[in-house]
Simulated scan of single mutants.
Amino acid sequence: MEDITIEELKERMDNNEALYIIDVREEHEFDEFNIGAQLIPLGELPERLDEIEADKDAEIIVHCRSGARSGRAKEYLSSEGYSNVRNLIGGMLAWQAAGY
């Protein structure tokens, strides 16, 4: 699945779409700033797959600080059979730089 831009995500959030978003940053990063996603740090993802409440074919958006860790999360989730994982391009750095 194609990755998602901050503009598309912001628009969909503003439209109150039901989105499933996972933040793969560390807890201290999440505590500093977050967009209300479910926190599952990248290093804990393999042990916490059972906490993902989305079907394997449902859209799942993953994000981190810059897009690198969430890119790895996307690869991992795809390898576990999740077929519709989208990485937020630029992550929270781009989100905050845009003033969202």
Rank of each mutant, 00 (worst) to 15 (best):
V24Q: 00
I21S: 03
P46D: 11
T5A: 09
L88Y: 11
M13D: 04
D50S: 15
G71H: 12
L77Y: 09
N84A: 09
I21G: 01
I61Y: 12
D31Y: 02
Q96G: 06
Y76N: 09
D57W: 00
G36C: 05
Y82V: 00
G71K: 09
Q96Y: 06
N16S: 12
A37K: 01
R48L: 10
V85L: 05
M1I: 13
E51N: 10
E44G: 04
E17V: 11
L45C: 05
E47H: 10
A98K: 11
E44D: 15
E47W: 08
P41H: 06
A94K: 12
L9A: 01
I35R: 00
G99S: 01
A58F: 08
R65Q: 15
A54W: 02
L9T: 08
R48V: 03
K10Y: 15
G90P: 08
R65V: 07
R72S: 13
F33W: 11
E47K: 08
Q96M: 14
E2K: 15
E11N: 13
E59A: 07
M1F: 13
N16F: 13
K10E: 13
Y82I: 00
A98F: 06
Y82R: 00
A37M: 10
L39C: 05
A97I: 05
E27N: 07
N34A: 01
E17H: 08
P46Y: 06
S79W: 09
E27M: 01
K56G: 00
R69I: 04
F33H: 13
I6Y: 09
E11S: 14
N84R: 02
D3R: 02
A94N: 10
E17S: 06
V85C: 00
A18V: 14
I60S: 04
I40C: 07
K10W: 12
A37S: 12
I22A: 03
I21N: 08
L88G: 06
L93W: 13
Y82N: 02
P46H: 05
G71I: 12
H63M: 10
R65Y: 14
R25F: 11
E8D: 15
W95A: 00
G43F: 00
E29L: 03
N34I: 01
L49G: 07
Y20W: 06
G67W: 07
S78N: 15
A18M: 11
Y82D: 01
D57Y: 05
A68E: 12
G90H: 11
E17T: 09
R48D: 10
E75P: 03
P46C: 09
F30H: 15
R48T: 08
P46N: 10
M13I: 15
S79P: 04
F30D: 04
A73P: 12
W95H: 04
E11D: 13
R25C: 05
E26W: 00
E8P: 03
D23K: 04
A37P: 08
H28G: 02
G99N: 09
C64A: 11
E47Q: 13
G91Q: 07
R48H: 13
R48I: 07
I61S: 05
K74V: 11
Q38V: 14
P46G: 03
E8T: 15
D23L: 00
Y20E: 11
E2N: 15
G81Q: 01
D31E: 14
S78D: 12
A68D: 14
I89H: 00
A98V: 03
D3F: 07
E47F: 15
S78V: 11
